[in-house]
Amino acid sequence: MDDLQFRRSIYADPKSRDEAMQEAIDGDPTKQQFVRDIEALDDKLAQAMKVPVPDDLYDKLILRQTLDSHRQQKRKNRIQLAMAASVAFALGLTFNFMQYSTPYSTLGEYALAHVYHEEGKFSNDDQVRVSLAALNDKMATFNGSFEQGFGELISAQFCPFQGVKSLHLVFQGKSSPVTVLIVPNHEELEFIEDFNDENFNGKTLLMHDNNVIVIGDKNEPIEQWQEDIKDNVSWSI
């Protein structure tokens, strides 16, 4: 190791010692002196660089951090609140959606479900009758009216049918009540002309933007009911 290189190394890092350098130092008093000089210089430098640190710096640093984390906490709380609100909102939407959507895909399925739901509310022997005037009063909602009574009308009431205001009529049938539903046409449920299950038969007629659904038990001549309705009803507009 030549002298220049040695000096450069010591200048660059007085504490660095590899074997070659240590050997060089050990064997040469001039080098030892040189190393001592530079080490002394470094001590002075270290001394000089240690500028006084403000006494309260530590406290200030802790204080700033405490204030900051307090602020962050508040921000976090706001975010949490916003998130909770969003979740509540989404739940509300879901609930609404479930409320007004059905597992039924066709008018027929829905109509049957409706009939089963109301089963037992009406009996074929009910003596209550609804007058033609009362019926037509309700039919006005659908821009229709019946010219004369047909069959024995036990009940006429509005029902929400898939969220749509519909008219639910119950007539006396041969062995059990016959249900007639008048449902304004809407796209969510697929139109189906004929449907049935083990207890009931049903047919749908599209009349003036209204689905007229007739449902009765297996003894009931559904076509006949449809004919009667067709003959009797008139639609305005």
Partner: peptide
């Protein structure tokens, strides 16, 4: 290392 050398 060069800069350290020059600085010292």
């Amino acid at each position: 290392m060069t800069r350290l050398f020059r600085a010292r």
